[in-house]
Amino acid sequence: HNLTITQGKLFFHYNPKLCLSEIHKMEEVSGTKGRQERNDIALKTNGDQASCENELLKFSYIRTSFDKILLRWEPYWPPDFRDLLGFMLFYKEAPYQNVTEFDGQDACGSNSWTVVDIDPPLRSNDPKSQNHPGWLMRGLKPWTQYAIFVKTLVTFSDERRTYGAKSDIIYVQTDATNPSVPLDPISVSNSSSQIILKWKPPSDPNGNITHYLVFWERQAEDSELFELDYCLKGLKLPSRTWSPPFESEDSQKHNQSEYEDSAGECCSCPKTDSQILKELEESSFRKTFEDYLHNVVFVPRKTSSGTGAEDPRPSRKRRSLGDVGNVTVAVPTVAAFPNTSSTSVPTSPEEHRPFEKVVNKESLVISGLRHFTGYRIELQACNQDTPEERCSVAAYVSARTMPEAKADDIVGPVTHEIFENNVVHLMWQEPKEPNGLIVLYEVSYRRYGDEELHLCVSRKHFALERGCRLRGLSPGNYSVRIRATSLAGNGSWTEPTYFYVTDYLDVPSNIA
């Protein structure tokens, strides 16, 4: 807008934040220059609390790290170098490059900038070799853009010569660093050979998330399962459950009422301010606690030095998902009996873990797994792929695949051998790939016309006998059925096997 004052003059007093240069501009645009008398524009009460600059400061050096910015700028000295009290560095987070010096300023003089007072450097006698002032900004957020400017702080001049310097606002972004852990990993099994893994992005990506790394490792069953005799009275049979499938998407929606109208769909109840505040506090606490764990609990591995020492970490090797089922080394339970199943799973520490690289999504279907087997899954978020990966501390989750139908069934015939004193040795093959492992066998036998009897055969007993022995049988026709019990439950009964026990007292003698 054009402003013209045809008559009258300007009068400025007691404006401590208004620089004289701005008042002189007002004289020019209003056409009143030359009308004012000496005392109409006070030299001592206008701009006496402001830094009124008329020179431009330029930054000469900028260096960044993930949490620091090192700045240096060209030296500046007023005509009387004693008038320079120091520099004021202003900075704040700036997602967009549209910041002005006066953003967030209120009537009390406060604003949204963080201000650092910096002492002037030592003055050199040689004007050509003056030290460049600077400042190291610490405690910054990774991968965050900051708006920065600097200006001088000078003393009051009796001659009211307006001098000083100020830089333009520059924008500097800190470097990326390792992201925080992925949030809320959930693993479920939808079949006997697959596990579905879902997660949420890290709360602090500290860069642009480029991919996720998912490692999985087959877990050995508890050692007590191999040692305890679950045929003993009072000892509860062990059981394991597989990871249940995901709930429906509708039930997972946030901010939804727990109660549904019987007449149909209901609208979600909005969260109160107290609920939102509580969630923010919980989120802040979780982030602080995660940072504490990362800094205190997890110790970084030592990389190899120039002395030739090897990095103890196993090298990563990509495998196809079809090879995942046989990740671990199978060892027989008892070496003397080769027909026992290889369900003991000690994992070799030198073995390469299978892994998958996930790009542009937060889910993965891990296939080719062994049925009813526990897996430990390790999830890392990465925001750099080359020249070397920059990934987060791992988040861990466990899951067990679903049982395989008929995996616990005894394959092959049940054979028998009759000894003296009416002892019958029953023999059968253990299931080759049971659900988890076989903890015991149930032997059901009966003599024709009598009630059915049951015998429990422990895992250890089966390994020693290759089956079991029935003792003290009365003469007669017998039928026997056997079924295995694994961590997933009972298998199917075998087809009945028949044998006849004679009275050993009636056996004919070869003595003449």
Rank of each mutant, 00 (worst) to 15 (best):
207 G>K: 00
210 T>G: 09
214 V>T: 08
215 F>G: 11
228 L>C: 15
232 L>Q: 07
235 L>N: 05
237 L>E: 09
238 P>V: 07
240 R>S: 08
241 T>Q: 09
247 E>K: 15
247 E>D: 05
249 E>V: 10
250 D>H: 11
256 Q>H: 12
261 D>K: 03
262 S>M: 11
265 E>K: 11
267 C>F: 04
268 S>V: 08
271 K>L: 08
273 D>C: 02
274 S>P: 02
275 Q>G: 04
279 E>F: 02
281 E>N: 02
281 E>L: 09
284 S>K: 13
285 F>V: 04
286 R>Y: 02
295 N>C: 15
295 N>P: 00
296 V>T: 07
297 V>L: 09
298 F>V: 02
298 F>L: 15
302 K>I: 09
302 K>P: 09
304 S>L: 06
308 G>W: 05
311 D>K: 06
317 K>N: 07
317 K>I: 12
318 R>G: 08
320 S>I: 11
324 V>S: 04
325 G>E: 09
326 N>F: 13
326 N>S: 11
338 P>I: 13
344 S>C: 10
345 V>T: 06
345 V>R: 08
351 E>Y: 02
355 F>E: 11
356 E>G: 14
357 K>G: 10
359 V>I: 12
359 V>S: 12
363 S>C: 14
363 S>H: 04
367 S>W: 12
367 S>C: 10
367 S>L: 08
368 G>W: 12
375 Y>A: 11
377 I>Q: 03
379 L>R: 00
380 Q>T: 14
382 C>Q: 01
384 Q>T: 06
385 D>E: 09
392 S>W: 00
394 A>C: 08
397 V>F: 11
400 R>N: 03
400 R>M: 06
403 P>H: 04
403 P>K: 02
404 E>R: 13
412 G>E: 05
414 V>T: 06
415 T>S: 11
419 F>Y: 15
423 V>L: 07
424 V>Y: 14
424 V>N: 02
425 H>W: 06
435 N>K: 00
435 N>L: 00
436 G>L: 11
437 L>H: 08
439 V>H: 03
440 L>T: 03
440 L>A: 05
441 Y>H: 03
451 E>S: 15
452 E>G: 05
455 L>E: 04
455 L>R: 10
457 V>Q: 12
462 F>Y: 04
464 L>G: 11
465 E>D: 05
466 R>N: 00
468 C>I: 11
472 G>A: 13
476 G>Y: 00
478 Y>W: 10
479 S>T: 11
482 I>Q: 01
484 A>S: 06
485 T>A: 12
487 L>P: 07
490 N>R: 15
494 T>W: 01
497 T>E: 08
500 Y>C: 14
502 T>C: 07
504 Y>E: 06
507 V>Q: 05
